[in-house]
């Protein structure tokens, strides 16, 4: 076994990486704080938020009012934009100094990018893309639940000897932290030492999609294989319901919807209040993505489709005439549900 960077005895505290972009915290970081607070209550560990970037004093101040015990803010001009190399260099430095027991990140593109590099630099284990976290009641070890094989298999992973115990957590699985502190937590600002050689990659340009984040949509119309590429019908229903459009893996693979619209174990976990599922067969890997939805309506021609086991209202019929009639009904009621 490779020697740990520091021993479990030398480690303490739960740290959450506060992913930020343009002075705004990523929602997953707030979700992580909520869960981490629950874990810290169990173990009595201190909860620290780690912020990295440049010129973020104001954001660090705002973070200090969240439900955490302190904020460590690592600052350097080369951290102004995220690059895995510079962020890994700077955060490794502060982690080796302060030796957290647990270090949690969001499984976002940036979070995974950083975590994978950092874990090797720290010579520690990393449990990736967790769908749940817990502390083992006996050992106190972090237990990360991960899914594999397209979501069919769930495994619990632990890291016994190496510290920090690192995990990335899938966005959307925990609720965002709600509570705030009455008085701001202390902010410790660390001036990082990032040589230019630690920052070989340059960000040339960036572009945000205009599209909406389906993991946060309140209402979703979801296209499955049964829509057979007729996204016009799906879009009409989405307009009538003021909903966003999601898709199953098959529909995304077919190119009818973008990858960012994919709902399911390998896509986005959505928690809409209303989900209308059109022509999906109900593969498990998809249905886990709508487990937390409020009202689920499923339309499928096939009475044996397993989607009906996951739905509140089941319509066994050709979806197109039903959807068209439903759109017409909403239109005749002047926008209906809006």
């Amino acid at each position: 076994m490779i020697d740990p960077a520091y021993s479990p005895q030398a480690a303490s505290g739960i740290w959450v990486f506060l992913e930020q972009d343009g002075n705004v915290l990523a929602p997953v970081s707030l979700e992580l704080l909520g869960k981490a607070r629950e874990l810290s209550r169990q173990s009595g560990a201190e909860l620290t938020g780690l912020l990295a970037g440049h010129n973020l004093d104001e954001l660090a101040g705002r973070a200090a009012s969240l439900d955490l015990d302190r904020v460590v803010y690592v600052s350097h001009p080369l951290l102004e934009r995220f690059t895995a190399e510079a962020y890994a260099h700077a955060t490794a430095e502060v982690i080796l100094q302060q030796r957290p027991d647990i270090f949690l990140l969001g499984a976002t593109p940036y979070g995974r990018d950083l975590a994978g590099r950092l874990a090797v630099m720290l010579r520690t284990g990393l449990t990736a893309d967790c769908t749940d976290l817990a502390l083992d009641p006996e050992s106190g070890l972090l237990l990360g639940e991960v899914s594999g094989f397209g979501g069919g298999i769930l495994a619990t992973i632990k890291c016994e000897q190496h510290r920090p115990q690192m995990a990335t957590v899938r966005p959307g699985v925990f609720a965002e932290v709600q509570s705030q502190r009455d008085t701001a937590a202390p902010v410790e600002k660390v001036e990082a030492d990032v040589p230019a050689s630690a920052c070989p990659v340059a960000v040339v340009s960036r572009r945000q999609h205009a599209g909406v984040d389906v993991s946060r949509a309140e209402r979703l119309v979801i296209a499955g294989a049964g829509v057979r590429g007729d996204m016009g019908t799906v879009e009409a229903l989405a307009r009538a319901l003021d909903a966003e459009i999601g898709a199953t893996r098959v529909a995304v693979d077919e190119g009818w919807a973008g990858r960012e619209q994919q709902i399911g174990q390998t896509g986005v976990i959505a928690r809409p209040k209303l989900a209308v599922v059109c022509g999906a067969s109900g593969a498990t890997q998809f249905t886990v993505g709508i487990e937390q939805a409020g009202l689920v309506i499923a339309l499928n021609q096939d009475p044996e489709a397993s989607i009906f086991e996951q739905a509140d209202l089941c319509v066994v019929d050709d979806l197109f005439p039903v959807v068209r009639a439903l759109v017409a009904e909403f239109e005749s009621h002047n926008g209906g549900a809006k």
Partner: peptide
């Protein structure tokens, strides 16, 4: 031997229960 993480448990993903499954 060189892996700091280990599998503590394994199970198949469960189907959700509790939907009304009312047929229209």
């Amino acid at each position: 031997a060189g892996s700091p993480t280990s599998v503590a448990g394994l199970r198949e993903a469960l189907q959700t229960v509790g939907r009304r499954r009312e047929v229209v």
